[in-house]
Nucleic acid binder design. Sequence first.
DNA 1: CTGAAAGCGCTTACAG
DNA 2: CTGAAAGCGCTTACAG
Lengths: 329, 329
Amino acid sequence: MKDVAARAGVGLKTVSRVVNGEPGVTPDTERRVRDAITALGFRRNDSARILRKGRTASIGLVLEDLADPFYAPLNRAVEEVARAHGALLINGSSAEDAERERELALAFCARRVDGLIVIPAGSDHRYLEPEIAAGVATVFVDRPAGLLDADVVLSDSFGGAREGVAHLVAHGHRRIGFLGDQPHIHTATERLRGYRAAMADAGLPVDDAWVSLGTTAPERVRREAERMLGGPRPVTALFAGNNRVTVTVVRVLATARRPVALVGFDDFELADLLSPGVTVVAQDAARLGRTAAERLFRRLDGVLEPPRRVELPTRLVVRGSGELPPAEG
Amino acid sequence: MKDVAARAGVGLKTVSRVVNGEPGVTPDTERRVRDAITALGFRRNDSARILRKGRTASIGLVLEDLADPFYAPLNRAVEEVARAHGALLINGSSAEDAERERELALAFCARRVDGLIVIPAGSDHRYLEPEIAAGVATVFVDRPAGLLDADVVLSDSFGGAREGVAHLVAHGHRRIGFLGDQPHIHTATERLRGYRAAMADAGLPVDDAWVSLGTTAPERVRREAERMLGGPRPVTALFAGNNRVTVTVVRVLATARRPVALVGFDDFELADLLSPGVTVVAQDAARLGRTAAERLFRRLDGVLEPPRRVELPTRLVVRGSGELPPAEG
DNA sequence: CTGAAAGCGCTTACAG
DNA sequence: CTGAAAGCGCTTACAG
């Protein structure tokens, strides 16, 4: 910038004015500055700008996996809101690892993002307290923060799972298996709670063998599903706790000897084209992201109100797999 | 940092040493500094650090859509390589808009990313010349740069499409439709070229009515597919130019009166579970991203060699839809 | 082992 | 309409 000023024969401030499109520069001066800029290949350094201005016009998003078909639309929705507010998005995958989540979030803060959106992997977010105190707006999404009172945007996991399982019950099922994600994940236990509630509502007992929480790795899900479908008193229906589980279960059922009913949490592409179509409890990932990002920017605009918990409804999408009657057994 | 130094009763440089874990500080001094840091809630400002150091340890990625199931794994692969090199990732969706691609890329450069990975939306990338001259390492992926000599990592679109169409020909098809993306997109025209080559190899004529390039919006694809499948001399097979087109075509064919063979470019989840399974020309999006990112970091390590074009092979995955014989008709 | 000075490239507040 | 000075929060040499 100094070089540009020297070459154009003007002061630093004038260059700054031209670069930022501020008024109060004669057309002639402006042209001289612009010529110098192209001649020298000048590129403004936003780091310096940020250092002075305070705000960086960027936000950070920590999610579980950039490539997950559920989180990718959430990511995109956050990006669009950020863009509408003139902010850039920095993001990263926690890979469901609390330490990695922490590293990412703090690295984003060190870059002085104005705000942070976090899909929690860990269960203790007190490490963000100094950042929040220093003014970093923070919103959690998909799962609540641990040991921290903060804004959170969730889907109604409990209600959705309850409705999905009740749907299976309504179609005559008495022995229903639940295959969910790891028990430290909030949505996993909420959905399990919904399953238990629906069973209790119907006065049905729950055998421990019908419930399995753990990683969504295909091998584990396959093993557990096959276990529940075998033995003397097999389940006649399965409830899958998220999109990855559902997809694996669909593969298992494709080779099953008798029809097994299935309802999955999360919708997924082509669910309607499988035979039978897969009945799901759909949540709107993009809306989740949009809602969280809008909340964040409202905070950045200075809205001061106590942290709020927003819960978005789910929607049962009936396609066939959830309406299969219990197989004779 | 000044406040921390004052409170700990040490010099600025000593605080800097502690924060950066540099040697040469007595344990006692270090503790005093650390106490002051927590007491004051000090958080290092990376903007200032960047301003001094030159490198920002961050890279930018411009892709078409963060939520696209093809690009999301590419995004994740780039992230993993960046992470392995201690760099953060900033990314954004061009939405297939050249102007938006440019805005994003230049915004990333203004933040002084060390390097840039771009999936081109536009066809003229000379706007990056000053950035590249100033030292921003730049690698293009999925499509080559326009009017700029730069590193690029591609899939073999021409060869893949040629193989896929030849596969349909080998199963007896003579009238094969090609449904591709917009003609300004490099991969779209390369795949069309592959289609024409395969038809020519087999001595088959190509009717203009069998070829359609345009947006991948479902309505358009549906309309064009239905057009090709209707009339007096309908096609007996379709080649779909990318994942989005394939998915729409699968929907159209699900309601078709007679079986129509299909081969799609790009693999997608559950393709094997549809009936019939969808035969595809698969490309490895993650490998594309990984290769591009590794190339970028090699450049950042100072490797000076002329820009290179890397072309990754595709793989024909046979699942049923591409082996259907031509329907009588 | 420790610190004072200069400077990275901008913007802010002020003066002409 | 224009510019000189101070400062954002760090690090880099250099000196003790």
